[in-house]
């Protein structure tokens, strides 16, 4: 199929591995899905320590279930990316380990304390879900199918995250102060989640033309603010002064983007931000440390007979 036909036919779930897609399409889709898959994995590793840190058994169970989901999302997405025939799963995992694989800005920052968890589990998951819900209509069908399962599961993540936020925001004075501090640290990063204004985004035009992306960064940032800014206020969080956010008469939010640290953002985008490199390396170490588990499982699967493996539900 030539590029003009692709653009003409571009629509929700229009293309699948049965179609002969041009290289430009397959490369753009690979870049987008690989980024998404990497982000799921890096997010899971960022949150993993909080299975142990969780203050109650319920929270521990929920956190371990959520982390399991995120890793599953990563695996599903590597499959969807692999179906484009540009890179193998192995290759993409290697790129993630050696620091070539790119992923979401928010997952480059380490998390130190339990009070920070709703910043990821509520706001970042909430922002991600806004985007993911639109990707159910992406043109690469295997990607859309992965989104069906991801979005099915995300509802739990966000409600769980909000439930932690609610607990902290209605807790002791100390807890309220700590969660406000965490919010001030994370808020600018969360705003940057959607990237800079569209004129500066290099990949959007093509991805939109071939139906891979359904909404622009600006539209997504806007709809995120519409939905989640009132939530922050509802829990008594004070919106930090920077960046300045103003509402025009139509109710739309305007973010003073030049007040945000784009130098750091682009450093992160190139995997050159030190704390982010730390995240990449610590994931690699954690992954390598359980090599023996994968080996044991492989061995078990090739030698064990008549024993159905337990489903991971």
């Amino acid at each position: 199929m030539d590029l003009d036909t692709v653009k003409e036919r571009a629509g929700p779930r229009q293309f699948s591995p049965d179609d002969d897609m041009p290289r430009e399409y397959r490369e753009a889709a690979t870049r987008m899905i690989q980024f998404h898959a990497n982000s799921e994995i890096m997010g899971a590793y960022l949150e993993r320590p909080f299975i142990r840190e969780a203050p109650s058994l319920d929270r521990k169970l929920a956190y371990s279930a959520k982390t399991q989901d995120e890793l599953g999302h990563g695996q599903l997405l590597y499959r969807a990316a692999e179906s484009l025939g540009i890179k193998t799963r192995e290759q993409m995992l290697n790129e993630l380990a050696n620091g070539e694989g790119k992923f979401l800005n928010c997952f480059h920052y380490p998390m130190e304390s339990w009070v920070e968890t709703p910043m990821i589990a509520f706001f970042v998951d909430g922002a991600a879900m806004r985007r993911q819900a639109t990707l159910k209509r992406t043109s690469w069908e295997p990607y859309a199918h992965a989104m069906d399962k991801v979005v099915f599961e995300e509802g739990f993540h966000i409600k769980h995250g909000e439930s932690i936020l609610k607990e902290l925001a209605t807790g002791s004075k100390k807890e309220q102060e700590m969660v406000q501090d965490a919010f001030e640290t994370w808020w600018p990063r969360i705003i940057q989640f959607f990237g800079p204004t569209d004129d500066d985004s290099t990949h959007h035009d093509f991805s939109a033309e071939v139906g891979l992306k359904q909404m622009t960064n600006d539209e997504l940032r806007q709809s995120f603010l519409n939905q989640y800014l009132p939530k922050a206020e509802k829990y008594g969080l004070e919106i930090p002064d920077t960046p300045t956010i103003e509402q025009d008469e139509d109710g739309n939010y305007r973010v003073a983007e030049d007040e945000l640290d784009w130098e750091e953002f682009f450093q992160i985008a190139k995997n050159e931000y030190d704390p982010g490199r730390g995240q990449i390396d610590s994931r690699k170490r954690a992954h390598d440390a359980v090599e023996w588990v994968r080996e044991t499982l492989d061995e078990y699967e090739t030698t064990a007979s008549g024993h159905a493996p337990q489903a991971a539900d």
């Binding site: 929920a62 979005v151 966000i158 909000e162 989640y228």
Partner: peptide, 29 residues
Amino acid sequence: ATFGGTTDKGYRWATQYNITAAAEEVADS
């Protein structure tokens, strides 16, 4: 086969959290 989805894992379901969905897509999920 051993299929999943039969053990009681209330904590992994959105319906178990007494909170109004934050957004339309959360409510759909």
